[in-house]
């Protein structure tokens, strides 16, 4: 095989630059969804040229070829299987669908107290924002506060009640909630506070108050289209 000449290398280099120009130009065209495809295809061609000529794959023995190819093949395996998940998620579980209203605020770093410190105060992860005592109305039980309830639901309960995991009634499933609402609000609250079957006490969040729980149940009931008489309801 003749040694590659300077002219040969310059040819490859000019092709690479021309492809770069083409790629940038295509970015200015109205290609819509196809744009990423076009620019990435050009990148693949450029990569192929670099690997084949600048990295001597053209002359390489089989084993280095397999080694190089496996890097790309394994990348495709990873992308293929991960995108299988993202592409087949149900509509309401799609990444991005849940976003318009973020369910909770991330705590700034360091805001969560160090549990090893002496005055342990798990009580207030900013994530959950339980209703402070001062804002609570006198004389619970009272009417469920569904807007606060929705907040609690979205940060805690949704983990199971969002999809109906482990037998949890799905918020919005009228039939399931209909049956449960017959037991009465107080029974539901006590089950949720103390735990019932797969449901851990307070959904596994001991920092929530009974009022928070009550609100969340109220939210799930109203989301399922059920209104239920509550003892605090008399004034209304």
């Amino acid at each position: 095989m003749a040694e590659p000449t300077l002219r040969h290398h310059l040819g490859i280099w000019l092709t690479l630059l021309a492809l770069l120009g083409l790629s940038i130009a295509s970015a200015f065209l109205e290609l819509g969804e196809a744009k990423a495809f076009v620019t990435l295809s050009i990148a693949v061609i450029q990569a192929f040229l670099i690997v084949t000529f600048f990295m001597y794959m053209r002359k390489a023995a089989p084993v280095p070829r397999i080694a190089a190819a496996s890097g790309f093949i394994w990348l495709l395996i990873m992308m293929g299987l991960i995108l299988t998940d993202y592409r087949t998620r149900p509509e309401d579980m799609m990444l991005g669908r849940l976003l318009p209203e973020p369910a909770w605020e991330s705590p700034p770093q360091g805001a969560v107290p160090t549990p090893l410190a002496k005055n342990r105060d798990y009580g207030n992860p900013a994530a959950i924002q339980p209703t402070p005592d001062s804002e609570r109305g006198e004389g619970a039980p009272s009417k469920p506060d569904t807007s606060a309830g929705e907040r609690v639901y979205r940060s805690v309960c949704i983990a199971c009640h969002g999809q109906g995991l482990m037998g949890a009634p799905r918020a919005g499933d009228q039939a399931a909630w209909e049956a449960r609402s017959k037991a009465g609000m107080e029974t539901l609250v006590s089950h949720a506070v103390n735990g019932y079957q797969a449901m851990p006490p307070k959904g596994g969040h001991p920092e929530l108050s009974e009022q928070d729980i009550r609100g969340a149940i109220g939210h799930m009931l109203s989301a399922s289209g059920i209104s239920i008489p509550v003892r605090g309801d008399r004034q209304d």
């Binding site: 890097g71 990348l75 992308m79």
Partner: peptide, 19 residues
């Protein structure tokens, strides 16, 4: 061969972030 094996693993190193 050693360099190519290393480069294959580099491809996957960046590949994770591309993913």
């Amino acid at each position: 061969l050693g360099m190519w094996v290393f480069l294959a693993s580099e491809i996957l190193f960046f590949g994770g972030m591309f993913m």
